[in-house]
Amino acid sequence: MNSDGTVVRLEGIHKWFGDLHVLRGIDLKIVPKEVVVLIGPSGSGKSTLLRTINVLEEPTEGKVFFDGVELTDIRTDLNRARTHMGMVFQQFNLFPHLNATDNITLALIKVLKLSKDEATTRAHAELEHVGLSDKVESYPSQLSGGQQQRVAIARSLAMQPKMMLFDEVTSALDPELIGEVLGVMQDLASEGMTMVVVTHEMGFAGRVGTRLLFMDDGVILEEGLPPEVINNPKHTRTQAFLAEVL
């Protein structure tokens, strides 16, 4: 924790992809135990913003602070900072050549330098945490989409991160599998994990989120308590978007 009490602080973030101005001046502070939900139409820059937080996308302009350390400073050890920030992707991105346990232990052994036994113990505990203690030996191709995504969450949690980033993690799932993944995320929020969630699941946003950000065209257009924004949007663009998705 640093002096201003934030986990993440973004200052004047701009991002261009070629001539495309994707993020147009974003300032954002996230404090511990917040569950920030990012919504907005596709192409609004919400995924890019999320990926800027762990510098998977380097902002063209602006600064990213995590835990008081400036990640956009090239002298910062990004690899170390990233071990404290879990991220889960839309496409799961499990390593197909490794089974569920080895997917989790890889970074524990190679980055955190745990012994193989410690790493395995922790991996099995995390798999149990997400309800997959019977799948420790399974390869990703043998798991359903929902199970794969839960392994991916367990893989991030095993690093014992200070915060978690979720990038449309249910968008690639069949409808009947979405619930199990949202359930895991809801448990995580109730355990006090700081989270940033890009999602189209408005129910989840209203139930679990502590703050809702509506993004459009590269700026944060509106923010507030989720139920208030969802039920009583002020901006016409927000109204139009919510009318579409609800």
């Binding site: 998977l56 690899n79 990233r82 071990t83 980055v111």
Partner: peptide, 17 residues
């Protein structure tokens, strides 16, 4: 897929790892 290296880097592994 690009996601493979992104997931790996996100876990803190270096480029060479």
């Amino acid at each position: 897929e690009r996601g493979q290296i992104e997931a790996s880097r996100t876990l803190g592994l270096s480029y060479f790892q």
